[in-house]
């Protein structure tokens, strides 16, 4: 076979398509985080008085704690199998920017856990008593927040991918780092529900997401390379 040069964009697209195909083949596993998110947010009203005013107060907390936990669920498997069967090693050695390829895999994690959450968030928010007018704000916050969660989570997944027993370690690594997402996201959601201007927390959340997007790929590549040794 003659030497064929593959551009980075083509390689990343192929990687994303492959991971998505693999995920669709196991659609049961893939849908679990979404189901988990819905169950968690649906359980909050059961633990409280189902008064709409009270639900509105706890809606941001329920939405964001649910988002944080459900983004953790699929994280453990993000790199584990590809590390075991040697795919990651091939990616590390293929000469294309490793950070970029890992970012593509992180994008798949977001497409499978973040994007469904963005789509379902209005439904969950409505169930928790959020008015229709709050939806654009909630959507924007969940969009930015889930991106940051995927990026931070990927670093944790890279650090723990080669550990046999990691149990709750991944959650312990990722959740404290995700605290700003929780704070800004929940605040933006609360302001959206109250019908107040929510630019401040949204900008802070966006800044945190951009910072994660610039720094996480380097940490991720370093973590995965160490895990491959």
């Amino acid at each position: 076979m003659s030497e064929q040069r593959v551009g980075f964009a083509a390689a990343a697209a192929a990687l994303i398509a492959r991971d998505l195909r693999l995920a669709l083949r196991r659609s049961g596993d893939t849908l679990q985080p979404l189901g988990f998110f819905l169950v968690v947010t649906a359980l909050f009203p059961l633990a409280l008085d189902p008064q709409l005013s009270l639900l509105r107060d706890i809606a941001p907390a329920a939405l964001w704690v649910g988002a944080l936990l459900s983004s953790l669920l699929a994280l453990d498997l993000l790199f584990r199998e590809d590390a075991q069967d040697g795919t990651l090693e091939q990616l590390a050695l293929c000469g294309l920017p490793f950070q970029g390829l890992l970012l593509a895999k992180t994008a798949v994690h977001w497409l499978l856990t973040g994007l469904p959450l963005v789509l379902i968030a209005p439904l969950a928010a409505t169930a928790l008593g959020a008015p229709y007018e709050a939806m654009p704000g909630i959507l924007a916050a969940v969009l930015l927040g889930t991106l940051a969660l995927s990026l931070i989570g990927a670093v944790g997944a890279g650090l723990t991918m080669s550990l046999k027993r990691n149990g709750s370690l991944l959650a312990l690594l990722v959740l404290p780092l995700a605290a700003p997402v929780l704070i800004f996201g929940a605040r933006a959601t609360a302001l959206a529900i109250a019908g107040e201007p929510l630019a401040a927390p949204l900008y802070l959340l966006a800044a945190f997401t951009v910072l994660s997007a610039t720094l996480a790929p380097w940490a991720l590549a370093a973590a995965v390379r160490i895990g491959l040794e």
């Binding site: 670093v155 973590a223 160490i226």
Partner: peptide, 14 residues
């Protein structure tokens, strides 16, 4: 050492 070094650096930025 190396894995926890990456975590410490990510942590100190945060």
């Amino acid at each position: 050492d190396r894995a926890s070094a990456v975590l410490a650096i990510v942590g100190v930025v945060n």
